[in-house]
Write a protein that binds this DNA or RNA. Structure first.
Lengths: 122, 122, 122, 122
DNA sequence: GTGGTCTAGACCACC
DNA sequence: GTGGTCTAGACCACG
């Protein structure tokens, strides 16, 4: 379900956060579905439970999951995080656009790229 | 000429690299212009010369500047780095677009954002 | 009669205690009225009877209910707990006021908030 | 500077967060002042550095301090956290008021308490 | 020296 | 069984 990339220089817990938030955003894991337990996932990835714990903690802070001791961790209802995710993503888009313009990429090139992606998503 | 942001989580040397690469890309510092010496810049920013040294190394590795022993560091000719910078920036733009679409941001919203920035740059 | 919030970080037994103590304080359940049996409530909420048991123990310890073996649990006479509940609640109010003042919230803002709530309760 | 209460059932890291946020809010520690290093504070309190780390991480997330590897942790400018602190504190006040009213504390008593504190702060 | 990450192993309350 | 906290000790990049 999840693979780690040890060549990636980002911390492991961050990779896990990214993987799961993706799965949740894309609807692969759905509302109120149970997340793998801290211990089992730790064994599966053969890393320390504390690292998983840290990742789950971040996922909870961002509203992707909720946990309750003794029961487990579960995926949050979509409405709880979808808004923040949108603004986060559009902020990144704005930054990328600003940088491209600053660096002097021609407007036509930017338009072409944007249109490609917008067409592809229809 | 350069200000440091201590609340920025990135290493200081990386901030310096970013600041100078920006200045160079935007043409504020031009081809073959002399970079401030490691020692004077270190004093100006009151940080360790090693940190400046490290930043200059990175700038050289990325092709933004070249150094000649005993004389100092100088800005590279534009053609040496401008292309790589462009592809780097457009890659980031593509990634941001893909993610926005994946997450389900409406096409109209993306178009509006893009147009805003393209208009602003005219 | 009672709903659980699984996103609440507090233990379930504590939520149950809070819900019932509220119902009792507000007079929804009255003196000497019988509490639902541990088993039926456990089934209704589909949780472990031990959890209900624990909640009832706490309620008894706090003086909200009393139980007699073989007969069930019953709501205590109001006078038994109402005083302690009042002091508890006013202590919390004092703490909140002190903190607001310490942090530097303007007196006018505090007054406005207080008046809003006092008006609303008329 | 900081004392731990081992009878307190809250986690240690949370106590530390509370102590420092108080010191910062009350201006005992001022803008850009250096926080004790993770290791020295750990030794002083004779607890594990990880626990301090966790506390500092929370303080940073809440905007009270900022940290940079290799340099240390520092108190944020007041403007960075004062707003969030105010809303947090007024929310707590509102909750306390609501509860007092729900439980049936007389309006006159609430008014008396509020006036006491408001007078005391003049 | 600093903060940040990770492991190994333990204990706790809750369910 | 679950998540949550804590300790002990290690390694890393940064300054």
């Amino acid at each position: 379900m999840i693979y780690l990339d040890y060549k990636d220089k980002r911390p492991i817990y961050e990779q896990i956060v990214e993987k799961f938030s993706d799965l949740i955003v894309k609807g692969v894991i759905v509302e109120n579905e149970k997340m793998p337990s801290v211990r089992t996932l730790a064994m599966e990835l053969s890393i320390n439970p504390n690292t998983i714990q840290r990742a789950y903690q971040e996922l909870e802070r961002s509203g992707y999951i909720y946990s309750s001791a003794g029961k487990g961790s579960f995926v949050s209802p979509r409405s709880d995080f979808i808004r923040s995710r949108h603004t986060e993503v559009t902020e990144r888009l704005k930054a990328a656009l600003k940088e491209a313009i600053d660096v002097g990429v021609h407007r036509e090139i930017i338009e072409t790229i944007v249109n490609q992606y917008l067409e592809g998503s229809k």
